[in-house]
Structures are given as structure tokens and as C-alpha cells.
Design a protein around this nucleic acid. Structure first.
Lengths: 239, 239
DNA sequence: CGCAATCTTGAATCATTTCAACATAAGTGG
DNA sequence: CCACTTATGTTGAAATGATTCAAGATTGCG
């Protein structure tokens, strides 16, 4: 149930047996949530954080006229709103993009962890700062990358993250989202995403078909995206 | 020396006397750094975090061709790279925008805090999740807001943050940055920032002159920006 | 099978960039 | 304190990347 979380954490640091047990025990309830459900609304008072066990979720903010911006995509093993432990109320919404299985972690159990497991606390803290690092890379994409580089970059990022949890293979991965949702991640219109995908396909770089990303030329994809995975912190640190 | 940090923290939560002492003691060294110094380079191994005592800093990422994206602006009281405590290496650069006074906080002292001050740990953790919330709002700006709304939004955010630490008054605040730097925050060219500032001035909304933001019509500025300060978490929470 | 959602394409429009020139302010050494 | 130099700001005109609008094609779903 927390295997993907462990894969993610162990790619970055050691997780001892007592810590592993603590992680397992922090999950109070497991729930299944259908696709397209807004799990958390901006402004809700929260007393649980959500561990994504299977499925995909997005976090987004709305603007009155100008539509919606997705600020993060979550994959299994992600602690989708661990930051609600410190924030108590979220500034964004959380949406299931597919049917999902989630683990609910009461905030008071996280408080116990901060009282009894300093190293595990730092590791959990790390995962929230990793989220921030991804936000920064998205800021760079949104602010400076062209449509084609931005799109390729998103595909690179997901390729890397999904590989860590064993959900990508050399030729690609499933990405169960529509072009509209892609556009909401990329700060583009869905029409332009469509044209950009066509361009990437015609250049033999990547293909997005049947909700699957098929990598045709990974080196070229990473070159176009100017992808440098350092911001994903995939080497082991010592904390 | 840590008054601005305390103002910032106490706007959000209680800070007890023992915690205040611990905060003060964590600063090992105070240093003065001239303007336009790259304090931290992307990829440096770090063993200190930086508390900004006076002056302004930015955090940015470079792209080979497409220039630079600033991902955050920091003001006194900000723990500029507290996230380097958990990340060890940064994915971005840190630059002084003015002469700055900083406090260096060794990571091992922060480790002691996680071992001995769980509540203070959560409070420091909170400040990093607050940074992430600002990143998300910038993602929204970069992805969806028009040039004029985006510019107005940045001015609103800084007005609010500077007010917390007593560095803004009703008519405005000092913002010692060039239009080029503004452009690097906003994902625009400096030429377009110039035109956008002209528009804001002519509409009687805000003026940016002599490195000072002069708010002419705050309600209108916030309306244009679609500014909702919830993401700055200015009410007291209980952690 | 039929309806709704999603994808695809073209043409016109629009916001922003680019390039280039000039104006103003700020900073430095004589 | 002035002259010179460099950084910063300002404006116009042309080019471009992305959006909008609209229509048709394809796919998925009940």
C-alpha cells in the first residue's frame, strides 16, 4: 500500500524499519474515489493529508475569466497535500484525474511523528520542498519555455517520476489526461496544445496517443525541453 | 536582528519564549553582502541556510537561450533558502538585489531544532510550504494572467508581504529593482513590462517610479490583478 | 447505435516579442 | 563638478507565437 511512497523516499534517503512502520501506521483509512472528483476545495479546513496509492490527481487554481491553472500532477506514492498539515487550509483544489485509491493520514498522527521521529520528519519535510522545486521548474516553463519546449518538458518530467515508481518503461508511459488538461498544466489553449503535439509527433520526438506518451527519441525530447532532472533530486542525500 | 522574522511568524502562529530564544541562537554568523552578488549557485553543496535580515534577494533559474526566470523575491524576515536544509543542494541561484545583511544558520542547528522543538519545527516547515504556495500563485500568474494583471498582482503581493513586516505604507513601498528584473519575475520582456507599467500608470492604478511602487487606487489594483491574499496565509493557524 | 466528449484543422485576430533608435538617469574618473 | 560612459527606461514599427472562433472528424460511452 505504501510501496510506491517507499520507492520514492528510498530513491532519496534511507528509511529505517521503525520509520517504515511509522509510515504504515500513519494511514488511518483507505478510500476509493472515482475520477473527476474534487477531493479538496480551496478554503476547506483540513485535518487529514492524502497519500495517493493508485491513480492520478491534479492540483489547480481557478481564475474568474482566464480559466484554470494546474500547478501539479500527482502520481502514486505522492503525498498530495502533505502541506495541508502545516497550512491547515489549502489555497488550491485537488482533483482526481482517474479513479484513485487514497490513504488518509490524520494531522495529529503527523504531529506525533514530528514529536518522535525527527529524521522521518525531515524526510517528510523534504517531500514538500521537492514539490516546491517542481513548482519552480514549472514557473520556468511557464515563464520562459516555448510551447513545444514546455510540452516536451512536462513529458520528460513525468517520464522520470514514473520511472522511479516503476510505472514507465523505455518507450513511454500511460498518461490518462485530455489535451484540455495538458493545456491547463502548460498555460496554453487546448487548440495550441493539439498543434504542438502534432509538431512533436511530426518531428519524431514524442507522440501522445490514446492517453499514452510514446517516446520516439528521448535524447531529442530532453534536448528540446532543455530538461535537467536535478530539480527532481534523484540522488541520495543525507538528512 | 530576527524581529522581522518574528513579525512574519507571529502573524501566523504563536512563538513562545523558548522558541524565540532557539531562533535567535540558530544564527551562527551575521554577514553583509553587496548588491548583485550570487550568494548561492545552483548545485552548490550547502551546510547553512540564509535568513535575510535586511535588503532584498531573488531566486532564479537560467535557460540557455530563453533567459532567466525569477521564481521568488525575498524581503527581510524571509528564510531565503530554508529548503536547502532538506534539499542539501539547490536547483536555483540566489542573488542579492540590494546590499543585504544576512544571518547564516548551520544545518546541524536546524537538525537540533527538529530533535528538540517539534512545534517550532512545524512552524519552520510551514514557512517552506508558504513559499510553495507563493510559487503556485506565480504559476497561476505566469500561466493565465495577462501582462497587466500579472504585473498588478506582483505589486499586490509585495504590498501585502511588506506590510506584515512594516515596510510598506498606505501609498506604497520601495521596490529596488529594474524593469528587466520585473520582466524576469513576470515572464515578459522588459519592453513589454515598460508598456504595461505605462498602462497601469495611465489608468491611475499604480505607478512604478524611482524604484518605488506608488499605489494610486488599491481597490482597482486588486481587482485588475484578481488578487486574493488567501495564499499568503495571514490569519493565525494552530499547529 | 447514437450522443457527447474530445480531437483536429483553417483562417482571422490579438498579445507579446523583436529590433532598432533615442532619451534619461546614474556612476566614475579627471 | 563636469565630461564621459554605461545602465536603464521609452517609444515605434514589423514580426511572431499563441488565441479565438468555427466547423468537421474521431473516439468513447451508455
Amino acid at each position: 500500500m505504501i510501496e510506491k511512497l517507499l520507492l520514492k523516499l528510498r530513491a532519496r534517503d534511507e528509511v529505517g524499519p521503525a520509520e517504515q512502520a511509522a509510515l504504515l501506521e500513519m494511514v488511518e483509512t483507505v478510500k476509493d474515489v472515482p475520477a473527476d472528483t474534487v477531493l479538496v476545495h480551496e478554503g476547506d479546513e483540513l485535518s487529514n493529508s492524502t497519500l495517493l496509492i493508485s491513480g492520478m490527481m491534479s492540483r489547480y487554481k481557478d481564475l474568474r475569466d482566464a480559466g484554470r491553472q494546474i500547478s501539479a500532477i500527482h502520481i502514486p506514492g505522492d503525498f498530495v497535500d502533505l502541506h495541508s498539515f502545516t497550512l491547515k487550509v489549502l489555497d488550491h483544489n485537488i482533483l482526481t484525474m482517474t479513479d484513485c485509491r487514497i490513504g488518509l493520514v490524520p494531522h495529529d498522527r503527523l504531529t506525533r511523528i514530528t514529536e518522535n521521529f525527527p529524521h522521518l520528519t525531515r524526510l517528510l519535510w523534504f517531500t514538500t520542498t521537492l514539490d516546491a522545486a517542481m513548482h519552480r521548474e514549472w514557473e520556468l516553463s511557464l515563464g520562459r519555455r516555448s510551447a513545444i519546449a514546455r510540452t516536451a518538458h512536462l513529458f520528460c518530467e513525468l517520464m522520470t517520476r514514473l520511472t522511479v515508481i516503476g510505472m514507465a518503461d523505455a518507450d513511454g508511459y500511460d498518461l490518462p489526461v485530455s489535451q484540455v488538461e495538458l493545456a491547463e498544466c502548460l498555460g496554453l489553449t487546448s487548440v495550441h496544445v493539439n498543434r504542438t503535439l502534432k509538431e512533436l509527433r511530426q518531428q519524431g520526438i514524442v507522440e501522445f496517443r490514446n492517453r499514452r506518451v510514446i517516446v520516439l527519441n528521448r535524447a531529442e525530447m530532453e534536448r528540446v525541453a532543455e530538461f535537467r532532472p536535478n530539480y527532481l533530486y534523484l540522488s541520495k542525500r543525507q538528512s
